[in-house]
Amino acid sequence: MYSFEFEKPSTIADAVTALEGEEAQALGGGQTLIPTLKQRLAAPSSLVSLNGIAEMKGVCVEDDGSLAIGGATTHATVAREAAGNYPALAALAGQIGDPAVRNRGTIGGSLANNDPAACYPAGALGSGATIITNARQISADDFFEGMFTTALDEGEIITSVRFPVPQAASYQKFLQPASRFALVGVYLARFADGVRVAVTGASEDGVFRWSEAEEALNKEFRGDALMGLRINPANMIGDLHGSKEYRAHLVGVMTKRAVEACV
């Protein structure tokens, strides 16, 4: 690692100030960032830990029934504390990384990184979540801008994420066998006003909504409704672990399984 200063503010305001420094970078759980730093692929002048900010931690139910999760809440906490109100999201959190990683990794860190194979982007996009920062609210549909790219500005912090709770939802993750990220992960949420299907792991452009599947499922919510639908492999990721065609195929299988898990 290159040398950097370490700061651990206890309020959002202090964190925002600290992040105004040149080449300052926010540190969530660090489960992706620290390996990146070890490889010397990033050279921040200072790391601003968000883990000391009490107001950014925890899971609570809002008045409208939606679930608000603090940006510095660990995956393990979400897996535990969201299980009652939003079991599909809790299940997703419980499938990220491994137990030790889940005890450190945070929802804010995961969403801000927007790894194309990460689980949380699918959960947020599939749920139609709202990403709340120190400066504004961003709908998930506007937040994810492509592989490792989001709508966040420099120094902007995800303070919490608000998830509307659907009638039914399911996350179907097919493991990449080495990293245990998603080779393909499908998050499906069924709301009164329609179905959302978000896919991670599959596309060169990062997480995306499979609108054809949503339309078909809005007409008829059963696995067979997806028959004949096919994702174009051209934009899929093809690598050591699976060809473009295979990923395109898996998107269909995982989506069908998500539907079946909801009915």
Binding site: Q31, I34, P35, L47, G97, D98, A100, N103, R104
Partner: peptide, 28 residues
């Protein structure tokens, strides 16, 4: 060096964490 092997697992405040993937100052 990618937080996968788990040989470095310790407990911090009662929870298992990968100590090679956490800054010492975070455990202050």
């Amino acid at each position: 060096d990618t937080a996968q092997c788990g040989a470095c697992v310790v407990h911090v405040d009662g929870e298992a964490v990968k100590s090679c993937n956490m800054l010492a100052l975070e455990a202050d």
